[in-house]
Amino acid sequence: MPRKRATYGRKKKSSVGPVIGGILISLASIAILSGIGYFGYIAYTRPEVDEQTMCLKTGPVEIKALLIDTTDPVTTKTLTDARNKFKEEMGALPVGGLVEIYGLTDVKGELIKMFSGCNPGDGKSVDMWTSNPRLQQRRWEDAFAKPLQEVESGLQQGPSGKQSPIMAAIQNIKLTVFDPYKTLDIPKKLIVMSDMIEHTDLYSQYKSGNDFAAYRSSPAYADFRTSLDHIQFKVWYIDRGIEKFMTVAHPNFWAQWVQDNHGVWDKAIMLEGVNPSSTPSGAKS
């Protein structure tokens, strides 16, 4: 009986490899398309920036205004302390935050605009995949950091002024800096670097001292009254060595003034050093 020859069927080619390859290609394609979609979405949804101010066109995320009293001389010691506090405040400003800095003059309502712009963020604040960190760093330095350094180094001793119209200056800043953004629910802060001795032809603390009732009965009350709603108020005090303005009664007067105008009183910080003082003309009682 003849032996049956053993038969071996040909092995079927496995279909697993091509299937896995197809899956991997599909996954890679999905990943690429997802990446393109993500970066496209980020670019599309990124808020537009005004190239002049470096502020978002939708508005700032915070507003910080500084009023620097340059109507009287300030010592080097006090200026050094002020510069240190200035650096701290600017360092705490978030990306997209607006800062405006003004110098006080002895003319009611007249201000010297020293700086205005938003913090665009430095190179560390942007995504390397969707932005150019080096370009962003240069933009931050040119539009924000360097101009602020110039303001800081420009804090100099001022000549004695005939008046010190602090209230009128605050009113002007409120109208020009804060009011354009009054519909935005964002932090709003005002810092005043001054001896805070109000002196104008309408009202003078050299004559009335810290009596808030005397201020309320003066023509200045109606003229300088302004709405400081939701604005946080802070003072960097310049010490003039005048006894009646060295007690808590003086900052309490300003706290009452801020609250009377519906603002939010934060605090008063005394800057280092005692500065020269001179009684301006018409200030004697």
Rank of each mutant, 00 (worst) to 15 (best):
I112P: 02
M167D: 11
A143K: 14
A249C: 03
K174P: 12
T78E: 10
I20K: 08
G96Y: 08
L190T: 03
I42N: 10
L93I: 08
T183S: 14
V61Y: 05
W236E: 04
F86G: 05
R5P: 14
S194L: 03
L271T: 04
S285K: 10
S227N: 15
K174N: 14
T71P: 09
L111R: 02
K87N: 14
P165Q: 09
I170S: 00
V74I: 09
Y41L: 14
D179Y: 14
N210R: 02
A283I: 04
A28I: 09
Q256M: 12
K244S: 13
T53A: 01
L271R: 01
I231Y: 03
E100S: 12
Q163C: 03
G241L: 01
T130D: 09
A28E: 08
A65W: 05
T247H: 07
G37S: 11
L24I: 15
V61R: 09
A145F: 11
E110A: 01
M167I: 01
K124Y: 11
V99P: 02
H230A: 12
R216Q: 15
Q163E: 15
L190M: 08
K146A: 13
N261S: 03
E110P: 04
N132K: 07
I42D: 09
T247G: 03
A169F: 04
Q259S: 11
I20H: 11
S164V: 01
S153V: 06
D211P: 08
S218F: 08
K13I: 09
F115T: 06
M1N: 14
F233D: 07
G121H: 12
A65G: 04
S116K: 12
W254A: 04
S164R: 14
Y203G: 08
A28P: 03
E272F: 02
R46N: 10
K108D: 12
M54R: 10
L67Q: 02
L66E: 05
G96C: 09
L27P: 04
E48L: 09
S160M: 05
T58C: 04
G117R: 07
V126M: 07
G59L: 07
S153Q: 15
E198L: 00
S116Q: 13
S160H: 08
L175N: 11
V107Y: 09
P2F: 08
H262G: 00
T247C: 06
M1A: 12
E110Y: 07
W236F: 14
D81Q: 00
A169P: 06
T58K: 12
A249H: 10
D195E: 09
K174W: 10
S153L: 10
I25C: 10
M270F: 05
D81R: 01
K12I: 06
Y41P: 05
Q149L: 11
P251I: 09
I20Q: 09
A255M: 10
M54S: 12
E243W: 03
A65H: 03
D223T: 15
T75I: 03
S116I: 00
T183Q: 14
S204W: 08
K174L: 15
G22F: 08
P147T: 10
K4Y: 15
Q205C: 01
D127G: 02
L66V: 01
P47H: 02
W265P: 03
